[in-house]
Amino acid sequence: MKLLKIYLGEKDNHGHKRMYEKIMELAYNEGLKGITVYKGIAGFGEKHHIHKSDFFTLSEDLPIIIEIIDKKEKIINFQKIIANLKFDGIMFTQPIENYEEYKK
Rank of each mutant, 00 (worst) to 15 (best):
H14I: 12
Y20K: 12
I50D: 08
L4F: 03
D88F: 09
E101Q: 15
I82L: 07
I65V: 14
I76G: 02
F44N: 00
K33L: 01
P95H: 04
I90F: 05
E97L: 12
P63E: 04
S59Q: 06
H16G: 04
G15I: 15
G45L: 06
L26I: 08
V37G: 02
I81M: 08
I90E: 00
I66L: 04
D12H: 06
E73R: 13
T93G: 02
M91H: 03
Y7S: 04
Y7Q: 11
E25D: 10
I90W: 00
G40P: 11
F92H: 12
N29G: 06
L8C: 14
K11W: 11
I23F: 08
V37I: 10
I82G: 02
K71I: 07
T36C: 09
G34L: 08
E100L: 01
M19P: 01
I76C: 00
K47L: 10
G45P: 13
F92Q: 03
K103A: 11
E46Y: 07
T93P: 08
I66W: 02
V37D: 02
H14V: 11
M19R: 03
N77I: 00
M24V: 10
E100N: 02
A42T: 13
F78G: 03
G40I: 01
Y99V: 14
K52T: 03
K74L: 05
E21L: 09
E100Q: 00
E30S: 15
L8K: 12
D54K: 06
H14T: 11
K71V: 05
K5S: 10
E60K: 11
D54Y: 04
T57Y: 14
F56Q: 14
G40N: 02
Q94C: 13
Y38H: 07
I76A: 01
N98S: 09
